[in-house]
Nucleic acid binder design. Structure first.
Length: 194
DNA sequence: CAAGAGATCATCT
DNA sequence: GATGATCTCTTGA
């Protein structure tokens, strides 16, 4: 039950994305604490990565990615859904890991209420769903992951078996669209898609 | 079950 | 003024 330190996030983005699988996302909120086991992530590795928002250069939106590692990058997509990312690598290397799915562990009733859904599998099996279940929105952009609002716990379980696939929804990214930068826990039923 | 449409808005051009 | 790192619901078989 060890909180992950900042130096974990400073590693190469792909390493962070892989090592996050099997760790626990902890979100503290006045309504209660929600916890999920991370089962799916995607790496957005830097300015040369055409699928990474930072490939467009520094903007107010991507500012957080240019800062120090171990902070949350949260943005709104399609006018509806928030996406939760963790900033990785040293200052001035803009990169992040998108957290795409978790297996609900604690605060399940709270998640059901927020998601208006009974099915355990649909509570956080996708980046938008996850943010809804964990009450994460743009107001949390820039949150320090070494604080108490959002953090990652290593509960000491051995690294799960992985599967690497192309990332979802980045068809516009040219030669980067086919790169296998999406990582899932093999055989886990809580991923957004097999 | 698969496919398609529609919802809705912050951000950047 | 265009455009998404998505999800849900409806349709039709």
């Amino acid at each position: 039950m060890q909180k992950v330190f900042r130096q974990f996030y400073e590693q190469p983005t792909i390493e962070v994305a892989r090592q996050l699988l099997g760790k626990y996302l902890v979100r503290k909120h006045r309504e209660g604490t929600t916890v999920g086991r991370i089962v799916e992530t995607e790496a957005y590795v830097g300015p040369q990565d055409l699928a990474c928002h930072a490939s467009k250069g520094w903007t107010r939106r991507t500012e957080v990615m240019f800062g120090p590692p171990g902070h949350a990058y949260v943005y709104l997509i399609y006018g509806f859904y928030n996406m939760l990312n963790f900033v990785t690598e040293p200052v001035d290397h803009p990169a992040a890991v998108l957290v795409r799915a978790v297996e609900p562990v604690q605060g399940i009733e709270l998640m059901r209420r927020r998601r208006n859904s009974q099915s355990l599998k649909s509570l956080a099996s996708g980046p938008g769903k996850l943010c809804q279940a964990f009450a994460i929105d743009r107001s949390l952009n820039g949150t320090d992951l070494c604080g108490s609002v959002i953090c990652i716990q290593d509960r000491g379980e051995p690294a799960p078996k992985l599967l690497a696939t192309p990332r979802i929804g980045v068809d516009y990214a040219g030669k980067w669209k086919g790169k296998r930068l999406r990582f899932l826990v093999r055989g886990n039923g809580f991923v957004s898609r097999a």
